[in-house]
Amino acid sequence: MSDTVLNLTDVTMQFGGVIAVNNLSMEVRPGEIVAIIGPNGAGKTTAFNVITGVYAPTNGEVSFHGETIISNHPQGKMTKLYAGEHLGKYDKVIQKTPDRITKMGIARTFQNIRLFKDLTVFENVLIAKHMNMRAGLFSATCMLNHNEEKEMRQQSMELLEILDLADTKDEISSSLPYGKQRRLEIARAMATNPSLLLLDEPAAGMNPQETNDLTAFIHRLKEEFHLTVLMIEHHMNLVMEISDRIYVLDFGKLIATGTPGEIQNNQHVIDAYLGVDEDGH
């Protein structure tokens, strides 16, 4: 089991009558770059929100390095509404909060950038270092944790340098151009020292040059920090070039999985997604 980083089994997320994620099982192994693709509304972001503890799934289980972090079965009015499979299989209820999950080593970025808008670039990264603070309120207030604070600042600064954002460190984060905001979100996620990084459409809104840089950059992050990466992405060039394996979702259901080569030649995928996408562009 624990030779996988992330394991989803039979995960269903139902909002009232809408089944956003339908019986999804998937795994991510150490050091992989795995992509989730699929048309808008396929349930990709919802899957991220389940993994990170933002939503409690209606049914199913998520484990991280072999430890179950989320497990649920239909409850309350969902027992009647539930339309998925494996009813009654998951009798435990485990729901770690998002901050606990982040502390365990899963970091994420958001599809609609969610920076701390009124704070500076540097503060955005520094805040992600807060969770590992040893100093309590008293010693932090009286600045008795001088070394720790210095260390936090130093590490944040290093990250900004690696992500090529050091020159913007004192700017208000919302004043950055779009591409840099996306990069800052990655920097902020990296500041939590994750072993698994979830990227929700990291190339959205980037120009071709920035997208190219991103490819190299994700590779570099992965090597330098021994990361495993799970990402949602629409740019097919980027996905095909970067990923080891791909999962394809459509209407919440997994319709295909395989290497980029396999996916490109999969008739289901071409019908549901790739064909449409290529016409669209």
Binding site: D99, T102, H130
Partner: peptide, 13 residues
């Protein structure tokens, strides 16, 4: 600024 993002940064709300 953003509760969801803060929580995703490991801050116990």
């Amino acid at each position: 600024e953003d509760e969801t993002a803060a929580e995703a940064m490991g801050i116990n709300l």
